[in-house]
Every structure is written in structure tokens, then in C-alpha cells.
Amino acid sequence: MNQITKRILFVGALFVALGALAYPKVKPLFTDSNTANSAAASARSALQVDAVRVGTDSVEDKIFTTGTLLANEEVELSSEISGKITDIYLEEGRNVKQGQLLLKINDSELQAQLTRAQYRLNLATERESRQEKLLEKGGISQEDYDATLNEVNVLKSEVALIKAQIEKTEIRAPFNGRVGLKYVSEGSYISPTTRIASLQSINPIKLDFSIPERYVNTVEVGDRITFTVQGTDREFQGEIYAIEPRINSQTRTLQIRARSNNDEGLLVPGAFADIKLVLDTIDDALMLPTIALVPEIQGQKVFMYSNGQVMEQRV
């Protein structure tokens, strides 16, 4: 191989090496150009969208809130006087009727006082009857007769007072309901501060909840509610029967009370309830997918297709 041939091979190898080194630098120029052409072509193609035919449907304007179940009537049984328990007639967890005797306190001393007062009253009544006949015949003065009649009336009042004290030794159910757990036993000495048991009426049952003040003028007595409680998948119905006449200045809410039937006893006072209150029902509302709404500074808008054209429509 002569000298000239060697130079030609060296120059060729040099150009190949330089080309290999320059290719990575030059490639983006051609790539960017192709990408720009592709983007321009895509821009010139039609925009693909999903269209929805608008229809009417029934829509409820409703509030979701929470509340607490309450007994329709509730009382803590207690004694008006102090004394030793002689008999307990209540059974824990059982239903009782209004006026049913639940507990008896020792009244032996009061019974003795009542017997003595009745004897004295009977004697005074007989004397008053004899003196009345004498008064008609003039055998006794009016003053003596009036004194005897006054004694009779005083003794009647004394008998009534003792009977009232005896009634306080008996604790009776003030209404139909269910007795809770008892905390006393026969022979216990109790006072007006002693906890005996609770009595609750839970059918119907009450429901307390609150709503924001902006709904004050949209809620009325008689409005229906639905609610659920833990422990059951059933949905219960209720009706508003009372509304607090003022707004709570601390929470800015309005207190509301509803009532619901509890024939099966599934609702327990103190339970937490999830409540739905329907404020209004729109029978012919236009329904749109939420994704179709486009937010604006002044509100929201949608794009509407009509007669082959697309136009904006504020909603």
C-alpha cells in the first residue's frame, strides 16, 4: 500500500468519527421539526367531546345533619321523704303502667297517727250531731255548737294531712314506661337525694337536631325527616313538631325537635342519628353532569350544542 492510499483511508476514517460525534447534536433539530409538524396537524384536527342530552327529573333540596334520640318522657324515681324501704315492686327493664306501685317506705308511725286522728274525728262528729239537735231545741248556745263544729273540721284536716304524708311513702309510676336499673334494696334507708331507678317512655321517641340559620324560613312544623342509627340498616321516618323560637348565638344554628314511632323498640334514647331533612322537591329539574359545569368569576357555564353550533350558556 503506497503513501497516497494510506492518506485516503485516514481521511475517510476521520470523517466517519466526526459524523458519529456530531449525530447526537444534530438529531434534536430534525426531531423538533417533525414534532412541530405533528402538533400542527393535530391542532388542525377536530376536538373530540362527549355530549349529553339534557332531560328533566325530580330533585330534592335537602339538608344532611346529625342528632340525638331522646325519650318521650323520662324521670329519675326518688322519694319525697326519708325512711326505710319495706317493699320493692319494680322489676328492672320491665314495663309498668301509670299509677302502679313501685316502692314502699315504712309508714307504721304515720298509720298509728292516722288511727288516732280518726278516733278523735269520730267522737267529735258524734258530739257535733247531738249538739245540733240541742241547738234546735234551745238547749245549747250557738257559740258552743260552733266550737264543736270547728273541732270536727280541724280533725278532718288532720286526717287529710296524715293521709297525704302516707302517700309520700309510696312511689308510683307517673306514666306508662320502662323501668331502668335499680340502685336500692329492701331495708335500705333512703332520702330525697337517693338514686332509686329511672323510668322512660320511648314510644314515640323524640329526636333533637339543629340546622344552620340560613334555613330558618324554610323549615316548618309538620315537615318530614328520615334518619338512620347504628346497629340497623333500616331507615326511620319522623315528623317535626317543635322549633326553638330563637337562634343559638354561639353556634348560629336553630334547634329542632321531631317525633318518631318506636313500636318495635329499635330506637334507644341517647343514640346518634344521621338525619335527612327535605326542604323542597322540584319535579321538573334539568339534570347535568357535574363535570359539564365550567366555573367562572360570575358563576358557572356550560357549552350547549344546538342547530349545528356550540354556544355558551350560563347556569
Rank of each mutant, 00 (worst) to 15 (best):
T232V: 12
I140D: 00
L9T: 12
K25V: 13
S38E: 13
S82G: 15
N2T: 10
G222N: 10
L77C: 02
E264V: 01
G99K: 06
P269W: 00
D87I: 04
L70V: 03
R214T: 05
S198M: 04
S249D: 11
F64G: 01
E167V: 02
S260Q: 04
Q113S: 13
L286A: 09
T148N: 09
V294Q: 14
L254Q: 11
G55L: 12
L279A: 05
S191C: 05
I166G: 10
Q111W: 06
T194N: 06
L266F: 10
L77I: 01
E132K: 14
I247Q: 04
N106D: 15
K84F: 00
I105N: 04
L90I: 12
I88F: 07
R252Q: 11
R94F: 01
N307C: 03
D263K: 10
L18W: 10
G308A: 06
R314T: 04
E312K: 07
L90K: 03
L70H: 07
V315M: 08
D233L: 10
V49F: 14
M1P: 15
L123Q: 14
L293I: 08
V96E: 05
A164G: 12
K163P: 10
K137P: 01
L277Q: 03
A242W: 12
I63P: 03
V184K: 07
I247S: 02
P24G: 08
A41M: 12
V310H: 01
L181A: 15
G299Q: 07
S210N: 07
T65F: 13
L254W: 03
V75Q: 09
L121H: 08
P174E: 05
Y305M: 14
E60W: 01
T86Y: 01
G231R: 08
V294T: 13
F15V: 09
G177K: 06
Q313P: 00
N150Q: 14
V184N: 11
E136M: 02
T281A: 09
